[in-house]
């Protein structure tokens, strides 16, 4: 079978190259996730704050990030931040060379920012859905703010935010394909290289689509399991 040969592992086929691309895709998503979640919690905390300044900052951040194409965010980080660091280095040391941000770091930061903007809204919704009486009860028995968050709010927020975060995770996985545009050798980029060498575009892009599809279906299944587990203490309505 001719098609099978192109996808085989080893010197003649592209199977091992595609697998390494898949590794980069997955590791990029896994690195972006904690960045995005941390940012999301910070944004959510700022937008439920009683002071207006953090609230306004959070509002502007989420509106901007959610209004920009992910590709544009990626370019702003990749070119913009790279240039900014170069200029700062030049300012301190005029002989410093041109600093180029690695595509992986730029991709992780950009995808983290996007995830942070969207998850901030999801987490804020979950935070505000909690019963205020619980917070008051915790204060009445002398818990401090951190304890209230860690022991009472956080576990419940996870349950409420899980469906939204699950969707964002799937989106994040799909958005990793964009980093191929800034020349990071992820799954998508490897497929383009393979197409250039073999002139079989349909075969490789279809394979890549199927790989993404399988990954998404797998994680959808995982998220459904997690939701089931998170809701095990809740009476079905």
């Amino acid at each position: 079978m001719e098609w099978f040969e192109y996808l085989s592992f080893g010197d003649s086929g592209w199977g091992d190259e595609l697998a390494s691309g898949l590794g980069i895709t997955l590791s990029l998503a896994l690195v972006s996730l904690p960045i995005g979640l941390a940012l999301g919690f910070a944004v959510a905390a700022a937008s439920v704050s009683e002071r207006p300044v953090p609230r306004i900052i959070a509002f502007f951040f989420t509106t901007t990030i959610r209004g920009l194409p992910e590709l544009l965010t990626l370019f702003i980080i990749y070119h913009g931040v790279g240039l900014l660091i170069s200029k700062t280095l030049k300012w301190f040391n005029p002989e410093a060379g041109f600093f180029e941000l690695s595509p992986f770091v730029a991709g992780a930061v950009a995808l983290g920012l996007v995830f942070g903007g969207y998850s901030g809204e999801v987490l804020r919704g979950a935070w505000q859905a909690l019963d205020k009486g619980q917070q008051e009860a915790a204060q009445a028995i002398g818990m401090n703010r951190l304890q209230i968050f860690r022991l009472i709010e956080f576990p419940q927020m996870l349950r409420l935010a899980l469906p939204g975060l699950g969707n964002l995770w799937i989106n994040l996985l799909k958005d990793t394909a964009l980093v191929s545009v800034i020349a990071l050798s992820d799954l998508m980029r490897i497929a383009s290289v393979a197409v250039g060498a073999t002139k079989k575009p349909f075969l490789f892009f279809l394979t890549v689509c199927l790989i993404y599809w399988v990954i998404c279906i797998f994680f959808e299944w995982c998220i459904a399991k997690m939701e089931k587990r998170a809701n095990r203490g809740i009476r079905a309505s």
Partner: peptide, 23 residues
């Protein structure tokens, strides 16, 4: 629905634009 929601738009675009070249 599952296919188009489970794959990146970029991959779909490449499949249609470049992939059609094979045929």
């Amino acid at each position: 629905v599952s296919f188009f929601r489970g794959t990146p738009l970029l991959a779909q675009l490449f499949l249609v634009y470049y992939g059609s070249g094979q045929f």
